[in-house]
């Protein structure tokens, strides 16, 4: 039931996504800003939504009939298929993007949001937890609930050094991944500093800093999870669900509310041909590892960069660690 509700909410969010992108972009294709109001644009958007909702309905139906939650992943496939089909049709209406790039050589040096100390807080919290665990080992219950379903806890770990310190280590690795994503957006994404599109540059840079801050906040989630698991407060499942819902709600509310509102050209110098299926950016000539999404809100990876794949390898290793130590 919870999964179905999440899928419905996600599909509703994706339904409105085309309306939240920059005016000169339509399904990741540079178009005339007036194209959005045309009949063809409405037809393309309708096609995207039909694919999206049909896949969602199919996903829920298969999930309910077979009682296997894995089928809900079909709804994500619907998003990719819908975007790819719409992107392909939008390409027929592409206009050349702005290929000129301007950099202010006198732009002041940027400071990392929150400073380098702020991003170390989650890791320090996990370090303190590890120290607390070693000093209070006997006070920790013999069995710790680590996962909750509708009817209460459904997964436990035993009180062994392997499982307790392993859990802290994997949460530390996950925090580190979020911190590295934040730092990657800060150091390895394009800054707009030229004077040609000053308002667009200010808007984009504001959103870029916001994304960095969001990832530094997300980095504290695994630390919060580890503390709640070890301390096992009354109704820990409700605590975790509350924290997760609060953070997820906050995350999307902040992103939607603070999305870049470009009124003029977006000064996006990425070529249309590098946006594969309208979602994946692949440009070996671009040294940026993170780029502003053309379809969606936030940043995406430049999949031609070796650093992007190194990041994926690290994320995969973190998830594998979780499975191995389960």
């Amino acid at each position: 039931m919870i999964v179905i509700a999440v899928v419905l909410l996600m599909t509703a969010f994706l339904h409105f996504l085309p309306a939240w992108t920059r005016p000169d972009l339509f399904f990741a294709v540079t178009v005339d800003p007036y194209f959005r109001a045309s009949g063809e644009a409405r037809r393309i958007t309708r096609l995207y939504r039909i694919v999206l909702w049909n896949c969602m309905l199919l996903a829920i139906a298969l999930s309910v009939l077979t009682k296997r939650q894995e089928f809900v992943l079909l709804s994500i496939a619907g998003y990719y298929c819908g975007t790819a089909v719409a992107h392909r049709r939008a390409l027929a209406h592409a206009v050349p993007g702005d290929s000129a790039v301007e950099v202010n050589l006198g732009a002041p040096r940027e400071a990392l949001p929150g400073g380098p100390v702020a991003m170390l807080v989650p890791l320090a919290a996990l370090g303190v937890l590890a120290a607390w665990v070693s000093w209070n080992w006997s006070r920790i219950p013999e069995r710790l609930a680590v996962h909750w379903g509708v009817h209460g806890p459904d997964r436990w770990i035993a009180r062994t050094p392997h499982s307790i310190y392993g859990m802290i280590a994997q949460d530390g690795a996950l925090s580190l991944v979020f911190i590295l994503i934040g730092m990657g957006i800060f150091y390895w994404s394009r800054r707009l500093t030229g004077s040609a599109a000053r308002s667009a540059a200010a808007e984009q840079n504001r959103f870029r800093r916001l994304n960095v801050q969001i990832f530094f906040v997300l980095a504290s989630l695994p630390a919060a999870y580890a503390w709640i698991i070890v301390l096992q407060p009354p109704a820990p499942g409700a605590w975790l669900a509350g924290v997760a819902l609060l953070v997820a709600g906050f995350y999307y509310a902040v992103l939607i509310r603070n999305r870049p509102r470009f009124t003029a050209r977006s000064s996006d110098s990425t070529p249309n041909s590098c946006w594969k299926l309208g979602i994946f950016y692949f440009n070996p000539a671009d040294p940026a590892v993170f780029v502003l999404q053309r379809f969606g809100i936030g940043y995406t990876l430049n999949f031609a960069s070796g650093w992007a794949w190194a990041g994926f390898a690290m994320l995969a290793a973190t998830i594998s660690l979780r499975v191995v130590l389960r």
Binding site: P96, S99, A100, V101, E102, V103, N104, L105, G106, G194, S195, A196, S269
Partner: peptide, 16 residues
């Protein structure tokens, strides 16, 4: 030294 005015460098990625 500080800059007296915005000093901008402009290039065109599509230029030959």
């Amino acid at each position: 030294l500080m800059y007296r005015m915005p000093v901008t460098l402009r290039i065109d990625l599509a230029s030959p």
